[in-house]
C-alpha cells in the first residue's frame, strides 16, 4: 500500500492515496466528507442532472481501502451524506454495497453539518468519538488538541517547472489532522485560505495526494 506513515500525538498513522487515514494499532480506517447522494441533491434543488454515479464511485474507492487494510472500525467523519433526504433516496444497490462494507465491523457515523441526524442504514451515530486520547469530530475545534476532523476539504497548490498543480491534501500539525473530502463530487478549499491558516500552527505539513496508487507527498503547508 502506497501510504505515507507519520507520527501524531505519539501514535503511528498512515495517510492513504485515497484521502483515508489508517490507524494500524487500532485497525481503524477514517474517511471524511463522503457527500453520498450529491447528484440526487443537485437534481432536486437545481434541476441539473449530473452523472448519477458518484455514490457508486465513492463506495468503490472505500471498498478497495477496506479490502487493503481490513479495519475493525470504520469512522465516517461527517457530511457522509449530502443531506438527509439524499441518504433516504439512496438506491437499493448502493444500500446493498454499503451493507456489505459495514458487515462484521464497527461502523461509526459522526454527524456533520450536511447530515445532522441519524440515518436508517445501521452503524452507530455520534456527535464525536474519542479513542485512546484522539478525538474524531467533523469540524476542528480551535481550543482542542489531539483531534482528527474534516469539513474544510483542504487542497494545496504547488508550482513545478512553470506548471501549477493542485491536489487534495491531509493537513497535519502537532495538535490536529484535517482530512480532505473523500467523496467523488467534492471540490476543495486551498489551505492558504485564512480559515485553514488560522487553525494550523507551524511546522504544519500538507500531505499531497497525487492520485490513485501514487504515494502521498508531504510538503510544508503552503500559507
Amino acid at each position: 500500500m502506497n501510504g505515507h506513515a507519520f507520527t501524531f500525538a505519539g501514535h503511528s498513522l498512515t495517510a492513504l492515496p485515497s484521502g483515508a487515514l489508517y490507524w494500524a494499532d487500532e485497525r481503524l480506517l477514517c474517511v471524511s466528507d463522503l457527500h453520498l447522494g450529491k447528484s440526487d441533491r443537485i437534481a432536486r434543488r437545481e434541476g441539473r442532472l449530473l452523472p448519477p454515479y458518484e455514490t457508486r464511485a465513492t463506495l468503490d474507492r472505500l471498498a478497495s481501502d477496506i479490502t487493503a487494510t481490513g479495519p475493525k472500525t470504520v469512522i465516517c467523519l461527517g457530511d457522509s451524506f449530502d443531506d438527509l433526504a439524499a441518504a433516504e433516496a439512496m438506491e437499493e444497490s448502493a444500500r446493498d454495497d454499503l451493507a456489505r462494507l459495514m458487515a462484521g465491523r464497527h461502523w461509526v457515523w459522526i454527524e456533520g453539518n450536511h447530515d445532522p441526524g441519524p440515518v436508517d442504514l445501521g452503524g452507530t451515530h455520534r456527535a464525536d468519538l474519542t479513542l485512546q486520547d484522539i478525538t474524531f469530530r467533523h469540524i476542528a475545534n480551535p481550543g482542542k488538541t489531539h483531534e482528527v476532523s474534516g469539513h474544510y476539504h483542504p487542497k494545496a497548490r504547488i508550482t513545478a517547472r512553470g506548471r501549477s498543480l493542485s491536489r487534495r491534501c491531509v493537513l497535519v500539525d502537532g495538535a490536529r489532522i484535517i482530512l480532505p473530502a473523500y467523496g467523488t463530487y467534492t471540490g476543495g478549499l486551498y489551505c492558504d485560505r485564512p480559515e485553514l491558516s488560522a487553525l494550523m500552527q507551524d511546522p504544519a505539513r500538507a500531505i499531497l495526494l497525487p492520485g490513485p496508487d501514487r504515494a502521498p507527498l508531504p510538503i510544508p503547508m503552503p500559507r
Binding site: A57, G187, L189
Partner: peptide, 16 residues
Amino acid sequence: TGRQATFSTDILYDTL
C-alpha cells in the same frame, strides 16, 4: 469564499 462549492468538470468526465 474560495470554497469550491463546485468541483472540476474533469471529475464528471472521468466518472462518465
